[in-house]
């Protein structure tokens, strides 16, 4: 499969995530759109890793070229899991204080 199709798919998912961050006001939906962007990046990393593995695999079947991309995806997933646990705790804290998850209430740093 040509690599450009994978890049286009990942770019499309990433832009959908950006549109979600820009147009929604619910903090949890914005958080989910950030997860969507992280997943688009993961898909692109795996596709690039397989792109570099292809010629090396044809030359030598035991080659591990391109394995770093997949390990990066693994570490991105680890960081995303930690980020979600802290972020959701912050959102719950905010809901407890202002009884809403509307991000427009979070403008106290403006003044």
């Amino acid at each position: 499969m040509p690599i450009q199709y994978y890049i286009a798919l990942a770019a499309c998912l990433f832009c959908i995530g950006i549109i979600g961050v820009l147009t929604r006001r619910n903090a949890i939906i914005i958080f989910m759109c950030i997860e969507l962007m992280l997943n688009a990046t993961n898909l692109l990393l795996v596709a690039f890793s397989k792109m570099y593995h292809g010629p090396a695999f044809a030359a030598d079947a035991t080659s591990t070229a391109g394995i770093d991309g997949q390990l990066f995806v693994f570490f991105i997933m680890v960081v995303a899991a930690a980020e979600v646990s802290v972020g959701l705790a912050i959102i719950v804290m905010m809901y407890r204080n202002v009884h809403s998850v509307d991000i427009n209430f979070l403008n106290r740093l403006k003044n």
Partner: peptide, 28 residues
């Protein structure tokens, strides 16, 4: 942003004729 990304992909000479290997390979 999507339009810019797509036009960059279409005009990049590095990515022409590169393919992602499907259903074989053992690094995964």
């Amino acid at each position: 942003l999507f339009t810019i990304l797509i036009s960059v992909i279409r005009s990049s000479a590095d990515m022409v004729n590169r393919t992602a290997q499907l259903k074989e390979g053992n690094i995964g």
